[in-house]
Design a protein around this nucleic acid. Sequence first.
DNA 1: GTTGAAAATCCGGTCAT
DNA 2: ATGACCGGATTTTCAAC
Lengths: 155, 155
Amino acid sequence: MSGLDQTDLAILRILAADATRSAAEIGRSVGIGQSAAWRRIRKLRESGILGGRRVVVDNAALGFGVTVFLGVRLAAKGRTSLDEFERAVTAIPEVQTVQHVLGQFDYRLRIIARDISDFERILRRRIMTLPGVGQVEANVMLSEERLPGPLGTLG
Amino acid sequence: MSGLDQTDLAILRILAADATRSAAEIGRSVGIGQSAAWRRIRKLRESGILGGRRVVVDNAALGFGVTVFLGVRLAAKGRTSLDEFERAVTAIPEVQTVQHVLGQFDYRLRIIARDISDFERILRRRIMTLPGVGQVEANVMLSEERLPGPLGTLG
DNA sequence: GTTGAAAATCCGGTCAT
DNA sequence: ATGACCGGATTTTCAAC
């Protein structure tokens, strides 16, 4: 199905850590030529395994020092409730991620605020007034560490 | 403090969406030349606002179709408990993100599994056996939407 | 499947305004 | 601060193996 060999996985591992590496450099690292490495990378992009490149923006440096995760349980959850909630929540500027989940909550939100009192304003004025919101649970982020994930040990 | 003008914010917005855009192209989009755009981008990097570039890897295409968020509450939380837990949890290959948080839970984990039964194995064999684990809450992700966040409306 | 090379593009820096 | 220019590196294509 996937048709990925060890070389492809090695390339993915390198690019996942640092997308600025050149095709020539990657080729040297995995033992193939620059042209071959570039063609493999293009194929990974075309097959959808490799998506777009994103820069990491330091929100704290922009004045947004507080990140809060919010579990939201809807009071009623028909189809229109989900659609309405999603449409309203994606319109809030401070909401960075909306995850539809299964379990104790229906949605998990990643929210960026300038400080705690700014977060309180967002919570009271924007979140609690959303259509159909029931139980809400907040967790303030202290630190975050991203790991290579399964890619690091695949193959 | 930050000293960012509208042009800098526009550049950040463009790069946050797609890091492959060239300095010349970005310059055209925001109404300045290639050299000026490149200088601003370098300054944003040097000031730490702009971090490294990362590629987006489609985990489902690699055979990991299930993403689960796990809230973990530690039984005892002295300094050694936190250190021990973090060291053990970062060694689990399927753990993609470790967030130290404040609130009902102490840690939030993003876990990637091949399927639900694979996740059950990870939960029972790897997570529940971690040192000091108390209450655990799981949410299976159905869909995820990333938004521009505060950057989209800043300025 | 691979390599090597040529053309187009981009980066990074210098200079003058 | 800005735009113009330039050498070197990189990307991308293409011919050949």
